[in-house]
Structure formats: C-alpha cells, structure tokens
C-alpha cells in the first residue's frame, strides 16, 4: 500500500514539473526503420516548444504518440501523469479533452458553420447549452472571428479556417495545445497571426507544442526548439533556432 502511495506521489511530483515525458521511446512500424528511436524528452508545464525536422524525421509519429493515436513499441510516454502505453481505449476520449489539437489541413466539419464547429467541442464534454452560448462567442472573439460565426467554414480563407480550428482547440481550456504544421497552408501574414495567437495562449498558461517547417517563425520567436532527424532528437535548445538537415 505504502509502495503504491509512494509511486503515486512520485508520479504527481513528476507531473508538477514535467507535463510531458518521453523515456527512451521507440516506435516501429511493420516495415522499415523505426520512426522514433530511443527518444527521451521532458517538456515542462507552460512551455512553448517547436519541434522541427524534415519529412521522415519522426515529428508526425511523435504527435500521434502524444495524442495516443499510437502506442510506443518501447519506452514510456507520460502526459499529465498518464502513462499512455497503459491507457485503456475507453479512457482516451477523456484524456484528449485536455489536449487542444490543430492540424495543417484544419480538419473542420465542412458542412457546419463556424459556431457549430467550435460548439461541437463543447457538446462533446457535455457543456450545457447556456455555457456553450457564453463560451463560443467569447473564444471566437479572441481569435478575431466574432463577426463570422454564421459563416460556413468553406467560405472562409485558410487563415480564418485555422483560427476556427484554434478556437475549437481552445474552447475547452486544454492544458496542452498540440499544433501539427499549423501554418503549413497559410501565407506569411496569416502564419504570423496564428503564431501570435498561440503565443498569447501560451502566456495564459497553456503548454504549446508546435511541429513546423517554418524556419522564419522558429528563428524569430526564440522558443525552445527540438530538432529531429531519422527518428532521433539531434538538438534540444532553449531559445534555439532552425537547423538545416546537413548541419
């Protein structure tokens, strides 16, 4: 009993410090070399982290592991105190509600309007209609889309669609925001707007992890940069910069 309590206490103290821990994580698929190979990482609560690297470096696999879409072949991943490798399927939805997720291709429900897309995230966590009517306009105002709540998402520009995705990711006030190439489909102006919104979200206490190829943004923002290559972390620098593949 005492042993269990000590373990739980240790887990809690680790969670107080590191919100995400990867301990010697390897992810192999049926064929080819491992997508991640013995990666160890610690991300603290409230950090803003860029993950960079070329195609095939293992960034997408890392995101999928953090979302618990995949499980590691070896090693352990702990997110907010949850060992993702041991997490049961039925507990995944509850876990994901603590994550805000933004994708390069926005992944909005195209047949619904802006309000419905954001409200949907609140419906999932069974917020009352009254709360939804209060929270959705508020988050849409934060991302600058208060006037477009009735628009179909297909009528919006790429930058606006990404703001909707960001609003949907943030409306449930997640602990961690995961963004997979959030500026990949945007022009420089919109890219900066999105990054500033993310910085603002981070300043409010949310841990932000951004996977990107955007050298200009990474170099300008002076945040922690984790560089990956062929499934391993080759650089992990505070206020780092974008490294070329051959560096």
């Amino acid at each position: 009993m005492e042993k269990v309590l000590r373990k739980k206490k240790a887990q809690r103290s680790a969670y107080d410090d590191d919100i995400i821990t990867l301990d010697n994580v390897t992810k192999s698929y049926a064929v080819g070399k491992p997508a991640l190979n013995g990666v160890t990482l610690h991300i603290k609560k409230g950090e803003f982290v860029f993950i960079v690297g070329d195609s095939g470096s293992g960034k997408s696999t890392l995101i999928k592991l953090l979302l618990r879409e995949l499980v590691p072949s070896e090693g352990t991943i702990t997110v907010m105190g949850h060992d993702l490798g041991r997490m049961r399927h039925r507990n995944i939805p509850k876990f994901r509600r603590n994550l805000g997720i933004v994708f390069q291709d926005f992944r909005l429900l195209k047949d619904r309007n802006v309000y419905e897309n954001v409200a949907f995230a609140q419906r999932i966590i069974q917020k009352s209609s009254r709360e939804i009517r209060k929270n959705v306009p508020s988050i849409l105002a934060t991302v600058g889309l208060a006037g477009k709540y009735k628009s179909k998402v297909t009528q919006l520009s790429g930058g606006e669609q990404q703001r909707v995705a960001l609003a949907r990711a943030m409306v449930n006030k997640p602990t961690i925001l995961l963004a997979d190439e959030p500026t990949g489909n945007l022009d420089p102006g919109n890219s900066w707007d999105i990054m500033k919104l993310m910085e603002q979200i981070n300043e409010n206490g949310t841990t932000v992890i951004v996977v990107t190829h955007n050298r200009e943004i990474v170099n300008a923002m002076h945040k922690r940069v984790i560089t990956m290559k062929k499934g391993v972390v080759i650089y992990d620098e505070e206020e780092g910069e974008y490294h070329d593949e051959d560096e």
């Binding site: 979302l67 039925r90 939805p93 509850k94 876990f95 994901r96 509600r97 994550l99 997720i101 992944r107 909005l108 429900l109 949907f120 995230a121 999932i124 966590i125 949907r168 990711a169 449930n172």
Partner: peptide
C-alpha cells in the same frame, strides 16, 4: 471517415 476522425481527435466518446 474524416468526420469520425475529427470527433475522435477532439475527445468524443465512441457512444457520442
């Protein structure tokens, strides 16, 4: 497929 994936990513239960 896409709609179901989106729902699952944002934390919808299987029932939902």
């Amino acid at each position: 497929k896409e709609e179901i994936n989106i729902m699952k990513y944002i934390g919808a239960t299987d029932f939902f």
